[in-house]
Design a binder for these strands. Structure first.
Lengths: 335, 335
DNA sequence: CTGTTAGCGCATTCAA
DNA sequence: TTGAATGCGCTAACAG
């Protein structure tokens, strides 16, 4: 392995000078810099990151934690897309990205501890937010830099997070249905532990209230992201005496299952039933019918979270921030 | 920061003894081990990974390189699923997983160099394989441990890779169509640079030949994974005087676009046209109709690649291996 | 079975 | 503007 010493020897300077050239220290002559750089190139020198990390007490690496994947949640195109957003700013900052590999909550928790205690990473991005999450609590305890994509369950004002205004979005998208004359509108959401589910549902409820529509508990359904999730929800809904005519679904992926099951039973969308949804994943454009859905700018969610985290790691003491990514409704044919 | 020295002091032994306890060296008394462990717990000690990496000359980290994401390829549920597979064995081996963040070929290439030269990782998994890939060539030049998910373009026998028998799979799935009496069968594939596209298409061609069916160049279409990819392909196909009655599509995601566009034009599947596909991504179950597709065991592809790579990194000199993951056809309703 | 010593490759004082 | 010395936290060889 070619080290800083070899470069020093070849270029006739001291190791510390080489180190300074690497850091592009302005107190080094352009001339010697040139000389040293030539030697580096000649020897094919590249700094050893572990050595550097050791002394710098920083790894310039960010940990990204995905939710537990017992379910197929991960298959949600949401994740590749946030990852792209995160990746773009991480890449530009010359950081590296360490992805969680655990599948269960236990594994993930253990892994986060390794990341934190072993100083694998300078900060962590959480790609989910839910009630009483061990990981979140741990990170807070340790006072370790992290940001949440989504809204924290508690300590909102002391936590940096990047989110949409899901309440408002839920309200707006529900209004789309109401404006079309729908009065029996159901909500189908993901796990009720997820903050995002709650927010969107609250928006849905508010919209109903404002319109003076009756709020019906049997119209609020929580299900899995699994393929069968949307299907089960539909089966339940169809079993009701009073069937809804409008559906607010909190995730495009669930919508897929919903539509599929609905058409199986002979219901056609939007003729028999209208449906609106969230996320504007690329799929929502391909489906039949294409989905009217809330574009939450997934990429941007990722990018901003990475940006905020990096700021936070370089500049400890950075205050907690709340970053709201604007959404917009994309009108297509499911209403 | 609490270091090995602090633990040593508190437990009244030397730093090296502590180090040995960490490594669970059998030449240390159970008694002292207990003592030392107690001190570690008491102080909340955790080894610093950078320091360890520095002396061990290994990071126990694996780099995973995704294809350039100029297109929406990444949104393909294939990737989360391989990542899950990779993650599972990486996690079990207590390795960590560094994900590429670059979007363009240039960025990716630069990033791989950083990973390799900076010794960020012990080995690399390539999640794609295509003609004349710079990254692959670089890795070979450097004689850096890597494995490909897919079949290498060249130096097949000297490269470790994990793949399906895509030729055979292509043949079998095409036969499904032929056996049903289809004679005009088209192939819609992804980029022709991708080895996987070529293999599957070759299988398709072989099947045609064996059945004595005419092979028609205007029936071989290459398109993007983009949403519009499948659509364009269909438009072209519909413009032909002699329209096919069967479609072999090399990716479930493309199939989605194909079906959507097809039904838009009033063609119904499988009544007017039959379609078979590849990957058995969860989507293929949700679509209408559910897809008859080749299950390529994506998770397993990932897991095996990680396993092979780790073996390779711990045991340099490990010979190149070819690992073929069996596929099976999942019969659903698109035929 | 355990302690002493040295050194991994680098960045950073402090001198010069 | 540069060099010499020191130490980051850890492991491993060598003693004992």
């Amino acid at each position: 392995m070619v080290t800083i010493k070899d470069v020093a020897k070849l270029s006739g300077v001291s190791p510390s000078t080489v180190s300074r050239v690497i850091a592009d220290n302005p107190r080094i002559t352009e001339e010697t810099k040139k000389k040293v750089r030539k030697a580096m190139k000649q020897l094919g020198y590249h700094p050893n990151i572990s050595a550097r990390n050791l002394v710098a007490k920083s790894t310039k690496a960010i940990g990204v934690i995905m939710p537990s994947s017992a379910n197929t949640a991960l298959q949600n195109p949401f994740f590749p897309e946030v990852l792209r957003g995160i990746g773009s700013v991480i890449h530009e900052a010359r950081y590296s990205l360490s992805l969680s590999t655990g599948e269960t909550d236990d594994e993930i928790c253990e892994e986060v501890k390794r990341m934190v205690f072993g100083r694998y990473v300078d900060g962590i991005i959480l790609l989910y937010s839910r009630l009483n999450d061990r990981v979140t609590n741990f990170l807070r305890e340790q006072d370790f830099p992290f940001v949440i994509v989504g809204k924290p369950y508690e300590n909102e004002s002391e936590t940096t997070y990047v989110d949409n205004d899901n309440l408002k979005a839920g309200k707006e998208i529900t209004k789309c249905l109401i404006d079309k004359g729908h009065e029996k509108i159901a909500f189908i959401g993901g796990s009720s532990d997820l903050i995002v589910t709650k927010d969107r549902q609250d928006g849905y409820i508010e919209a109903l209230k404002e319109a003076g529509l009756e709020e019906n508990d049997s119209y609020k359904i929580h299900t899995e992201f699994l393929k069968s999730g949307g299907r089960e929800a539909v089966e339940y809904l169809l079993s009701l005496k009073e069937k809804p005519t409008g559906l607010v679904v909190s995730d495009d992926l669930i919508s897929l299952g919903v539509i599929s099951r609905l058409e199986e039973s002979g219901y056609s969308i939007p003729d028999d039933l209208s449906l609106v949804s969230f996320n504007n994943v690329y799929l929502s454009e391909i489906t039949r019918p294409p989905l009217t859905t809330v574009d939450i700018q997934i990429y941007e969610l990722g990018a901003q979270s990475a940006k905020a985290l990096i700021e936070k790691t370089v500049n400890k003491g950075e205050p907690a921030k709340r970053i709201i990514i604007p959404h917009k409704i994309v009108y297509r044919d499911s209403v």
